[in-house]
Write a protein that binds this DNA or RNA. Sequence first.
DNA 1: CCCTGATTCGC
DNA 2: GCGAATCAGG
Length: 177
Amino acid sequence: MNWTDERVEKLKRLWAEGLSASQIAAQLGGVSRNAVIGKVHRLNLPGRAKAGGTPAAARGTKRVAAPARPANYPARVATRTVPRTIGATALKEEIDLDTVQEMQYVPATNVVVPISRKLSLTDLTERTCKWPVGDPLKDDFHFCGVDAADASPYCSYHAKLAYQPVAERRKAAAARA
DNA sequence: CCCTGATTCGC
DNA sequence: GCGAATCAGG
């Protein structure tokens, strides 16, 4: 990947916003966090006050773990978790995601997604739908982001796609065997 | 072990 | 200029 003016601008903006190098790398795509850090140096951008510390921008907002990847989705390029998850909340999220993994996942390819707030990974919160949209390797990849009900990791629309009735799954399994 | 940025150095 | 390897730290 090459550092086009556009990508450099995005890098500058995200770095100024306080995103970590790995998060920026994930959003730019096709580069490692090392590449980002290296570029930051070469651009003589101001470094972080102290290494290893939490960036100011990330400290204020509650963030959640990234959703488990559906079986037919390619692996994400870089990081799959976001820092600053609050203790009890993090545990709750993990339980929810485990449940999701046991369910049969319906690919979103042949489905029309009605609305989307087009959130990137770092914009996800506890109450946003974490249904992935598009190819994680491409630039326009995002998450649904519509308000999710209660403890669900998905909005009501995507929850219906994610969770299939047990009877349905039994039928599918039987047909396969 | 997860993560963070910083630096070095072969390419 | 680029970025992987490495370092130093939380």
